[in-house]
Amino acid sequence: MKKSMVLLLAGISMSALLTAGCANKEAVKKEEAVVPPVSVEKAVPVAPVEQAQPVEQTAPVQDAVASAVSPQEAMSPVAENRLETVYFDFDKSDLRQDTRDVLSKNAEVILKTLAGAKIQIEGHTDERGSAEYNLALGERRAKSAQQYLTTLGVKAENTSVISYGEEKPAVAGNDEGAWAKNRRAEFVVVK
C-alpha cells in the first residue's frame, strides 16, 4: 500500500516536472533559501537536472549547497593570493615574529586594496592531537590573527573566523615538515 503510494507520487512528480518547468522554479527557490547569500550568483548555474531531485530526498539539496560553495572558493584565489598564510608552533596560538610580519603585510594589502571586503580567517592545525581539541585550537589561531589585524586597523566587522582543525591539511605527510605547513591561518576573501 505504502509502496504503491510512493510510486504514484513519484510518477506524479515526474510528470509534473517533465510537463512544465514550473516545478523547477520551486526547487530553485527552495535552494536559494539555504545557500549563503554570498554565493547566489554563482549558485544559479548549477545543473537543473539536480534540482529536479530535492522533492525526493534531502541529500541533493545538501549537495547543491556543497557545490554552491565551491565556485566561491574558486573565485577567491585572485584576491587570496595577495594575503599570505601565517604559521604557528605546535599546540600554540600565539603569534611568532615572522607571523606578525606577515600579518602586517596582509593588513596593508587589506587596507589598500580590499577595503570593505569580507575576509574569512581559517584556522588549521596539524594532524597530531585530538580532532576535537584541534578544532578549538584552530579557532584560537584564527582569532589571534584576527585580533592582530584589528590592532593594525582592519575593521573587525569585515573579518570572520572559522576553524577546520586538522580536517583540511595544506600538505599531506606526517613529519615535522608537513606539520609545520599545516599549523596555519589562511585568509579567504569571501566578498
Binding site: 510512493v6 512528480s13 512544465a20 516545478a23 525526493e56 530526498q57
Partner: peptide
C-alpha cells in the same frame, strides 16, 4: 498548470516529510 504543479510539489514535500521515500 503552474498552480497545480505547485500544489503537487507541496503535497510531495509534505508527504516526504511524513513518510520519507528514502
Amino acid at each position: 498548470s503552474a498552480v497545480i504543479h505547485l500544489a503537487v510539489f507541496l503535497l510531495l514535500a509534505w508527504y516526504g516529510r511524513l513518510m520519507p521515500l528514502q
